Computed example of a mutant assay.
Amino acid sequence: MNTSPIQFATLNREHPQLTDKALIDFSNGLEVIGDHIRVRERNNSSFWARLLSQANGESALRQQAIDQNITESLKTVSTWLQYLQNQQIQSDLAIAKVANKLSETRQGVMLLSNKHNALQQEVAQLLLAMDGMDTKYTQLSARLEQVDCGRLASQQIDAVFDKWQAGRLNHYPVLIRLFLVFDELYWGDFGNYCRQSGLQHREIQRLNQQVRDKALIQLKYDWVNSQLPSIAYAWQTDTHFHLQSLATEHREMIAYLTDTAAHKTMPILWIINQLASNTTNTKLLPNINVPIILTAQNTINRFSFDFEARYKHE
């Protein structure tokens, strides 16, 4: 068992989707400014509430707390925007989601600017930073209209499967290798093409079949090479055992990349999250949608079903 610490730069180089997911998770957390503004608007909307707050001194204390929190929130968002502008975001999905979140945040900031003169300078600087991200999003939209998305998707398919065939995922359990391949495709050019054109598009269906065929070929090879049962593989116990032999950072990465999997619609991804998160041999949460045994062909079908549900969710 290798317990040596893994550098984040190494994880990010081997699994580029990791940083893009982290950016989206961070942007989804930018709700604090909106919450503060909603509190202020709710408290100012009622004459009786304002009168009572002034009488008991509650208004001044609450206002002071809100102003302090808003100031800290502005600093956090500003720092985050500076980071985004200095980094090369690889995933179009990440940029699009960040842009949507910035649009919501901008509305809140403009409302804040109109109601709080003391923060006008900070708000102006923040809006300037947002304009920089808007420019990136505009450039992204122009690029998506010009490039041959199908060609880029095909190139990514070849690159990801070359990595698998070259043995660069061999330190992971067999089924986790398949997950990482599908996950990297989801976050990259192949996933962007699927989201743009839709899963029912004829070219998408052709590429999806190509992915399934390539995955089955390589999975069968790994299956035999790892001496897994060909007819009835009790995969959960074996996968859990091998996950516990991974470096902590690798196991935690698997848990992180599957942390949004739905219980019913993505049962395979959900149970992988449970297996990676559970560091003991305690009983896992029940899920009747999770298969007990698998074969190579059934594994491909199951993973494809889960990732199709993931695309539809997006």
Rank of each mutant, 00 (worst) to 15 (best):
S91C: 03
L84M: 06
S45Q: 12
A96S: 14
S103H: 11
K115A: 14
H116T: 14
N100L: 07
W48H: 05
A65C: 02
G108D: 15
K97C: 06
S59L: 13
N44I: 01
N117Y: 05
L81T: 02
T105D: 11
L111M: 10
S45L: 10
Y83M: 03
K97V: 14
Y83F: 07
V77A: 13
Q87E: 15
E41P: 00
E72T: 09
R106T: 04
N56G: 03
N100W: 01
N86L: 05
G57A: 09
N69A: 12
N44V: 00
L81G: 05
F47C: 00
S53Y: 02
A118I: 00
S53P: 00
Q82K: 13
I95R: 15
G108H: 04
V109S: 01
S113C: 09
K75H: 13
A49V: 09
S91I: 00
V109L: 04
L111E: 10
T76I: 06
A65S: 12
Q90H: 12
N86I: 00
Q68L: 11
L112S: 05
L74M: 14
S53T: 01
Q85S: 14
S59P: 00
Q87H: 12
W80S: 15
N86A: 14
S78K: 06
E41I: 08
Q120N: 12
